Computed example of a mutant assay.
Amino acid sequence: MRRPGSSLGTKVALAVAAAATCVASAVGVLVHRLTAEDQLRTARAGFDRELVAAAYDHAAGRRTAARLDRPDLPPPVAHAVRDKVRVTYLHGGVLWAATPVAGGKVLSLKRSYGPEEEALSTLDRTLLATGAAATVAVSLAGLLLGMRMGRRATAAARTAERIAEGDLDARVHPRGHDEIARLAASVDTMAEALGARLEAERRVTADIAHELRTPVAGMATAVGLLPPGRPSELIADSVGRLRGLVEDVLEVARMDAQVAAVEREQREVSAMARRAVSGLDGVSVDIVTDTVVATDPRRVERILTNLATNALRHGAPPVVVTVDGPVIRVRDEGPGFPADLLTVLHASGPQRFRTGDRTGGTGLGLTIATGQARLLDARLTFRNRPGGGAETELRLPD
């Protein structure tokens, strides 16, 4: 994934460099043209004065540098002089000045325009060096500015990613009063509002679940007093599911409140796996290699029970729990995880009240399993097997 900071810094630096190059080029061209025009105008005016002086000397019979009827006189100069016009003309690096005199002859002067052209070339080199230095300096300044803006934008983006991953205490702490500071302040405001809403939701959920425990327990006791029969069995089954749901909600609330305690013991992984699925029909345990780990057995068994139950409910039997040292895999023969659910599982973990089937439903199994794994410093991985079926891997810390 491209970092927004580096991209923004590069774009700002390139934009500043392009602007500086355009400005330097425009200034250089403008100065070159104005200097060349002024230089030519000054040279022609001075050479015209020399021609006038030479014409007076020629008329007075004095010796002069001007010559009559030069054979190499450029055609434009000769044509203009025939019209009784005194002219100055730059042709091929040579400056000409000519004027008609008595007898229909043409008096002319010429000199090299090389000194002016050399001076103009020197000016061009100076403008080029100055423009390049200014462009580099401005580009460096733009790069520093872009890097600073990029770092601030990256900090805001990373904080937003942490918030999306569940770290609601993450903050940007903006500085300044520009647009990036406003964006950072908006991210902080969003995090505070989201945290407040989630905390209110957690409190309400925990309070409701806590208040339901007593009536649900009473219902479970009352079901035991009903006469045997199919209606009693249906009521007992429904009350049992309701009681399990209430306990699941309370467990999630405890994990959200970070009040769940981990009690570690030395236990065999195979023993925990067998106990976890002992009451589930259609689930078998396969031991490849066994090991002893220091963990909370109650939480490990809760994870495996939820994973196996989820596999039975949303996959298809047989469900196999494979123990390979500290790694436990739960696989089924169902259609596998839906692609959109796998995307969510890989990006942000299980979402509450979303299950692995394609029709939706209410379930907390994967959410509780992921929360318990996080408490144990274990890792859960969800994937679809190439041959079909879903597979969940629990890797316990050694």
Rank of each mutant, 00 (worst) to 15 (best):
V288T: 04
H346Q: 06
F353C: 06
N306E: 03
Q372G: 12
R148E: 04
F382L: 09
S284Y: 07
S7L: 14
D188Q: 12
D124Y: 12
A18V: 09
S278C: 05
V85D: 06
L90Y: 07
V319N: 05
G356V: 09
S25P: 07
R111N: 00
P227E: 14
A59P: 05
T214M: 15
D124R: 08
R63Q: 10
T205H: 15
R241A: 14
V187W: 02
M149V: 13
M255V: 09
T295P: 02
G224F: 01
Y56N: 02
C22H: 08
Y56S: 06
A253V: 12
R267C: 13
V319P: 01
D167S: 08
V288M: 11
R111W: 05
D72K: 10
L280E: 01
L366Y: 08
L128A: 06
V262F: 14
A181R: 06
L366W: 12
P335G: 06
V216D: 13
D237M: 15
L234Y: 15
G240W: 05
E161V: 15
R383K: 13
T322A: 06
R171Y: 00
A78W: 09
V27T: 09
V277H: 04
R197K: 11
L380M: 09
A253D: 03
E333Q: 15
P227L: 09
A373L: 04
H32N: 11
D256R: 15
K11F: 10
T322E: 01
L307N: 05
V320A: 03
R331P: 00
V16L: 15
R203E: 14
S238R: 15
G356P: 10
M147W: 11
G46K: 11
V81M: 11
H79G: 03
Q351C: 03
D296F: 05
L73R: 06
G104K: 00
L183F: 12
F337Y: 01
V16C: 13
G240K: 15
A156L: 07
A36K: 04
E192T: 12
A102E: 01
A339D: 09
T35P: 01
N306I: 06
L168I: 07
G360H: 02
A257Q: 11
